[in-house]
Every structure is written in C-alpha cells, then in structure tokens.
C-alpha cells in the first residue's frame, strides 16, 4: 500500500473536480472493494475522496418505478419494504451477496463498480491484460474454474463484474444517473454501462474520469414484482456465484406475456439474455419452454478446461429460477 491523501467531500462538485484533475485519485464509499485493491497493490491512488457525505440517498417510489441513491447501503436497500415487495429479485441479489458486515458498509454505487475475482488479476505477481494491458492472460491456459463462458475474448475471460446486484439491474433495464465535474448529469442504461473485454479488458465501463454514479432507477412492471434471483455457489453463503439468474415473468393464463432474463457468473459482464426472453415471450410457461430459453441463453458459450460445467449449470440455474417465479 502506498501513502495517500484522504479528504471528505461535502459537495459533489468538489469531489468530481478532484477526481477529474488527478488521474490517480479515487472515490471511496464503503471501501470494501477499494481498500482490498489498494492493500494488494492492484491499484495505487494518490488521494481518496470520501463521498459518503454526498446527498445521493433515498429509496423511493417514482412515477414509473424505483429510485435508489448511489450512497445507499446494500443492506438498507435489500431490506427495504418497497424493494422486497415490488422488486424481489433486486432484494435477493443484495441479501445473497457478501456477508452482513460487508452489506452494511457497501454502497450501491460501489457495488456496481466492484472488480473481478479472477485470481490472476488479484495477484500482481501474475501477468494480466486487465491489470497490465498487453502482459497476457494466464487464465486462458490456467485456472479458469470461476471465469466467464460468454462474451469472452482472447485478451480476457474474466467475469469482470463478479457480483449480484448488477445482474438483477441488467435484467430489469435499470438506468444509472451519472454526474460529471461540470455538474452535468446523463442517464445511461446499465445494459450499456459495462463493456465487453475485446482487446481492451482494462476498460470496464463507460464511466468518464471524475464521473460519479448518483442514482439508479428501475422501471416497475408486472415482471419486476414476479421476479427472483437464484445464486449457485460452492458454499451456502459468503461466496460469489458460480452461476446466477435474475428473472422476471408476466404470465397470463399460462402464457408468458413478457420476460426478463439475466445471468451472472458466466458472462464477462452481467449477461442480459434477449435470446432467452425471445423464446419465453408468447410461449407457454412450461419446463420445455424454460429449457429452450436456457439453451438459447447459452448458445455461443465458449467454455475452457475448468469452466465447462458452467454451460449446464447456468442453464439449470435459469430453469430453476423460472420455475420458481411461475410457482
């Protein structure tokens, strides 16, 4: 860990200006991702700008859905009655994540920006294209048990976002409100927020230097209420997903009117599957439909030596999640 300066920002403008002007500066919210990265010498920052006092709070009902301030804590959002009742998949994605201690510290904005658990990325002794562009990707020939099978490139096969929340957000078309140093806000659908690794795995999101995540909005629909998040892992708690599925269905008389599907743990980004949604929409809510949707979601998967199991696991996870929401 290097020496660094620390300051608390009371206005968004102060915070964004510092981070725009100093490429080595970083925001700190809960610090549960950032401090780990700094202690392992994966990121070196000259200064940390504490954004916990910024007024990006609130878990509110809006005209068309839900609005969550970026500074809200995972535990508060996950346990909020509005989220529990009308967006169960989002609540579950938060409460199945990490541990209670971490959820109490961790913010929504920080969650969206957590970084991969790829073991090669996490240890600076290894080469890694994401950490040191051009140095190589040892995971291709090495330990890729936990890594992605969808959206991979020859440069990187990491589940760049390893967590849960964004999988649910991607499924339900959440929109992020971002604010830059000029105080200007823009709205970016979360499905367009994360980038595929391609030849530049170091570039993970469309966030510009200095830009802050201010809020998350999620439109409400029948399928957000009838939704679930299913997470599969080696131990019952306190582990990242081997595979996960966020799904929502609107079913009328046994026919699926609308469907939302996203997968976690298998894509280089939280993986929205419009292919699966297409199969589901208009089809009967039966296991055969679910299986066909799952097959569509995993078509084109490129497994490697140790993560071959994820092709079947992800499909079965998706089928179980769909079965759960139809009840």
């Amino acid at each position: 860990m290097n020496n660094f300066a620390y300051q608390q920002a009371s206005k968004a403008k102060d915070a964004t200006a510092i981070v725009r002007d100093d490429k080595q500066a970083a925001y700190i919210a809960g610090g549960t991702t950032l401090l780990d990265l700094m202690k392992a010498n994966l990121e070196q920052h000259s200064q940390l700008v504490d954004i916990n006092l910024l007024p990006f709070k609130g878990i509110e009902k809006t005209n068309d859905g839900l609005r969550i301030g970026a500074m809200e804590r995972m535990s508060d959002v996950g346990e909020h009655p509005l989220v529990l009742q009308q967006f169960p998949a989002i609540s579950e994605s938060l409460l199945l994540a990490a541990s209670p201690q971490l959820r109490n510290m961790a913010s929504m904005g920080g969650n969206i920006l957590q970084r991969t658990r790829c073991g090669y990325f996490r240890d600076p002794a290894f080469p890694c294209n994401k950490r040191v562009p051009g140095s190589g990707c040892p995971a291709l020939q090495g330990d890729n048990h936990n890594l992605a099978i969808l959206g991979t490139s020859e440069a990187c096969i990491a589940t760049s976002y390893p967590g849960d929340l964004s999988v649910a957000l991607v499924a339900f078309d959440a929109v992020l409100t971002l604010e830059n140093a000029k105080g200007k806000q823009r709205r970016v659908p979360i499905t367009e927020f994360y980038l595929l690794p391609g030849t530049t795995p170091q570039k993970e999101t469309v966030l510009e230097p200095g830009e802050l995540i201010v809020a998350i909005t999620v439109p409400a629909a029948a399928y957000t209420q009838r939704s679930t998040y299913l997470k599969v892992r080696e131990r019952s708690s306190y582990a990242y997903a081997l595979a996960s599925a966020a799904v929502g269905l609107e079913v009328q008389n046994g026919t699926i009117r609308a469907a939302r599907v996203a997968l976690g743990g298998v894509g280089t980004q939280p993986w929205r599957s419009r292919e699966a949604e297409q199969v589901l929409t208009g089809a009967p809510a039966t296991e055969a439909t679910f299986r066909a949707a799952a097959a569509a979601a995993l078509r084109g998967a490129q497994p490697r030596e140790h993560n071959r199991f994820k092709v079947e696991l992800a499909q079965n996870t998706l089928v179980q999640a769909l079965q759960k929401v139809v009840g």
Binding site: Y120, P138, R235
Partner: peptide, 25 residues
Amino acid sequence: TVRDENFARYTNASLADYHIPVSAD
C-alpha cells in the same frame, strides 16, 4: 488451493477465494 500449472503459484490465496464452511453449511 489451486496452484497454477505454468507458474507454480497459487491463484486463490485468500479467505474470500479459498472456501471454508460458513455457519449456513
């Protein structure tokens, strides 16, 4: 514990990645 075949170095040397049972198990 996973030892990378090419580097002879562990890829999961942390308690986040080397899993031991939690109470729920």
